[in-house]
Amino acid sequence: MDEPMVRFRHDNAAYSVSFTSDSTALAVGSLDKSIHLWSIATRERLHRLRGHGEAICSVSFLPADGTLISASLDRTIRTWDVKEGSQLGTMTGHQKYLTDMAVSTDGSFAVTAAHDKQVMLWDLKKFQHIRTCSGHTDLVSCVAISPDAKHVLSGGLDFLIRVWSVADGTQLKEFGPHKRTIQCLSFSPDGRQFATSDESPVVVTRDFKSGQIVAEFEDHRLGVRCLAWSHDGSRLASSGSDGRIVIRSTAENKVLRTITAHRNTVYDLTWSKDDRLLASASFDRTAAVWKT
């Protein structure tokens, strides 16, 4: 395995990662029902946030004030004061396991996906439910928000990618069907393209407006689990069940780097604000930070 800048070990699978805005700390959501906040410089655990009753499937720092938001299989969304290590609030609405969460670029709202086949929008300022997007015929496994915050993408076990209007929650269009469950979605920073994968080793990029396939590439031995576009749009990182992270140049459409990162599926990837670091969370019970 390749050596990361730092690797944080946990007692159970790591599902999700998020950098603080200054990239000095990393939040890791785990199957152990807690969130671990690690100092990247000292490698010390700053806090272990407990309160969720089930695995944490997604964590994300809000850009404005550094509040951490988490989504859990326990069907709740919670906010945390990471300086104090305390919980601020809880939102509920989903009837079954939550699977994924995305936060808008400005941090004003979040979108969640769940086993109840629903996509829900949440106001993060008023801390309340905005609306529900209904239409998926099976569980929803992933969501993404367009950079202009006008659209939401969702995909799941019905093999379809659906596009929703943030303004009114209506379905605008759908892409697919794919051959298998849609596992991951990621918008390019300019909003023109999005990348997706469906449990296969193949990543597909599509033009958002037309839905046309722009590129397909197969860089993994096993299914792709997460996709993350760098903030400057120049690189697309993918991770999979093979434990690898592959970083591609989107302009040149070539692999820049393949990292043998983990011993098990890499569930989440996130870029630091300046794109110099990439964090990964894996079922191998570790989270790691990589210099890119």
């Binding site: 695995a55 499937c57 069940s241 011993r263 098990n264 599926t265």
Partner: peptide, 12 residues
């Protein structure tokens, strides 16, 4: 899912 696939757990 959502508690890891058979293969995630097997690799563990």
């Amino acid at each position: 899912q959502p508690h890891g696939t058979n293969f995630d757990n097997a690799r563990d």
